[in-house]
Design a protein around this nucleic acid. Structure first.
Lengths: 129, 129
DNA sequence: ACTAGTGTACTAGCTGAATAGTACACATTA
DNA sequence: TAATGTGTACTATTCAGCTAGTACACTAGT
């Protein structure tokens, strides 16, 4: 699975990691019982300090998505898929809402907004393969 | 015009102000030749330090959206409407792209994504009046 | 000339995020 | 037993964002 940190994002790095693990589990790419990359491995992979990765993993453990196996790794919990599908929807809805609210309140027409959505969907769909 | 700061957003406050001025001009709510609220007035209105507002205004001046009339206020430039319509589209496209990329890469179907968009559009459209 | 507004600029301090480094306990494997 | 991985936790430092306070120059109105 591809983790991808946007250094220019205003979203803190550890939150980006949290979201991407959630999305990965929701997508079925990370499955219950499997281990997610260690803090050192993921830290190296995305050029981020292991403590920052550990911070993200701590939050994921708090949410019940993973459980720490000290000396072994972080394991995806049995209830993680459901948790993550719910969380994914919430995260996406909130982001869509923020963006669409700005679009609407800046007097773009609904038709224009829908057109932008379709353009970006087509573009993104072509990229994510 | 209603300025609205989301203190919980990860977007810095000064950037939220920048965007909202751009959206206001693009929407025709702020017109060329008019003055935008002073740094002190807007600072009070949104409970933000005038220096933070001044920082946003500095960026807007750099982008050519406003020009400083020292002792008078910040005036919307003649070319601001076009600039802001372009900028609005770019800002929204970027945000949509980020959100939709995450939606697609987390294996939500296009149909499901479209449904979420319509739900949030309906919701937001009902709110922004 | 004075007052009340405007923008601009500076110093100082706080908070959150991130990094760097280090060290310890646990688990697995050879 | 030793080596190599794992997570966890701590201190210290840096940086960005924001605030608070202060002061100065400009403009317009009285």
């Amino acid at each position: 699975m591809l983790f991808r940190i946007d250094a220019y994002s205003t979203v803190p790095i550890y939150e980006q990691i949290v979201s991407q693990v959630i999305f990965g589990v929701a997508a079925g790419v990370l499955r219950s019982g499997e281990l997610i990359p260690s803090v050192r491995e993921l830290g190296e992979r995305v050029a981020v300090h292991p403590n920052t990765v550990a911070r993200a993993y701590q939050e994921l453990e708090r949410q019940g998505v993973v459980t720490a196996r000290r000396g072994r790794g972080m394991e995806v919990t049995p209830e993680a898929p459901k948790l993550c599908q719910t969380a994914r929807r919430e995260i996406l809805c909130r982001r869509l809402r923020e963006t669409l609210r700005e679009a609407v309140s800046s007097q773009l027409s609904l038709e224009e907004i829908r057109r932008l959505v379709e353009e970006e969907l087509a573009r993104v769909n072509g990229q994510v393969k």
